[in-house]
Computed example of a mutant assay.
Amino acid sequence: MNEKIYDLHCHSTASDGVLSPAELVQRAAEKGVNVLALCDHDSIAGLAEARTACQKQGIHLINGVEISTCWSGQGKDRGIHIVGLGFDETSPEMTALLAKQAALRLDRAIQIGEKLAQLGIPDAYQGAKALASGEVTRAHYARFLVQIGKVSNDTQAFKRYLSAGKPAYVKADWVDIATAIDVIHQAGGLAVLAHPLRYNMTNRWIKRLVVDFSQWHGDGIEVAGCGQSPDQRQLIARWANEHQLLASVGSDFHFPCAWIELGKSLTLPENVLPIWQRLLQ
C-alpha cells in the first residue's frame, strides 16, 4: 500500500498564489496529495472553497493559515512566518488577529503604491489590485511590474524595488511570534515555524529563532520542503528533536514551476515525530 502524501503549506488566490482554491486542490489531486493544508498569508478566505473541492477529490483538508510576524534577530527586525494548522476557523481570537493583519496589509499595500508613484510608476496599487483576488501583497506588485515591463521577472522586481532596503519597500508592524502562537492555540490549532532556512540568517541566528519559538510553546517546525539538500533536512530534523518540536512538511507552492510542486519530495526523516500524528487524532 502506498504511503500518504502530505502537503501542509501552500497558497491560493486568497493571498499571493495564482491558482484558485479549487484549482489548487485539483492540482494537488493530480500530484497524488492525500492530506492538504491551504495556508494563505493572514487569510482563511479560501478555506470554504478548498474544503468543497477536497470533498469531491477525496483529499483530507486541514485548516491552515500563514501568519506574518516580527522577530528581532541578527541586529534587526525580521519577518518570520508562523503556520497555524488544524484550528477552528470561527475562533473569535483568530478572526480578530486576521482582521488586524488585513488592515496592516492594506495600509502597507497603499504605501508601496505611493512609493512606486514617487519612482515614476503611477497607478501601481490599482494595477496590483487588479491582479489580486484577495489582499494585495508584494507578489502582486511584482507581477504588475513584470506586466508593465519594468522588470523581466518577479525575482528582479523584489531585488530592484520590493525587498528590504529597496526603494519601494515598506516595513509592516506584524504581530509578534508569541502572540501568533497564543492565538493559534486559543483557536485549538498547532503552531509551526515555516521554512526555517529561508530567512537569510546564519545558522547561529536561525537556531536562536528555533529556541525562542520553542520557549514560546510553538508546536512544530517545517522539516521537509521542496529544493532542500539532504544535509539541510537532517539539520532541521535535529533541531526538531533537540527542542521537542513536531515535524511538518510543506511545498510552499504559489504557482506551477519546475522546482516547487505540491507534494514533491516531502518525505520526513525517520527519526522525527510527524505533526499529523497530532493533527489527525
Rank of each mutant, 00 (worst) to 15 (best):
R160I: 14
I221N: 06
E49C: 08
D88N: 12
R204I: 13
K76W: 14
Q55H: 13
W71Q: 15
G73Q: 11
W216E: 11
N153V: 09
A102L: 04
L47V: 03
G120Y: 12
V146N: 12
L197P: 03
S163N: 15
K264V: 05
D182Q: 07
G134L: 12
H81L: 12
S15T: 06
H185S: 06
G32R: 01
W174S: 00
S163Y: 01
I82W: 12
G225I: 11
L104C: 09
C54Y: 02
A128M: 11
I121H: 14
A29I: 03
A237V: 07
D231W: 13
P92A: 03
K4Y: 06
N63M: 08
C39L: 03
A22F: 09
G218V: 02
S15F: 00
F87S: 01
D42S: 09
A142N: 06
W239F: 04
V211D: 15
K264M: 09
A237H: 00
R51K: 13
I184N: 05
S214V: 07
Q111N: 12
W71G: 00
H9A: 04
Q118T: 12
P256V: 00
V151T: 06
E270W: 00
V183A: 01
P269M: 01
C226A: 06
Y141D: 10
D212F: 10
S214R: 10
A194L: 00
D154G: 00
E23I: 03
H254Y: 05
G149K: 10
I110G: 04
R108F: 00
A178W: 07
L119R: 11
F253G: 05
K150N: 12
N2V: 05
R78D: 11
Q156A: 15
C39T: 10
A191T: 06
I80F: 02
E3S: 09
L19T: 07
L145V: 07
I148V: 13
A237E: 01
P92I: 03
D231I: 11
R208W: 07
R78L: 08
N241W: 02
Y141E: 11
H243Y: 14
R238C: 15
R78N: 12
W205F: 14
E89S: 15
P256A: 00
R278V: 14
A178R: 08
G250M: 05
N200K: 14
I260S: 08
W276L: 06
D212G: 05
Q55E: 15
A191S: 08
G79D: 15
I5C: 01
P21R: 02
A48I: 10
V272K: 06
V272L: 10
K56Q: 12
H9Y: 04
L104S: 09
Q147A: 14
A28G: 04
D42Y: 04
C70Y: 00
A187D: 01
A53C: 10
I62A: 05
G46M: 03
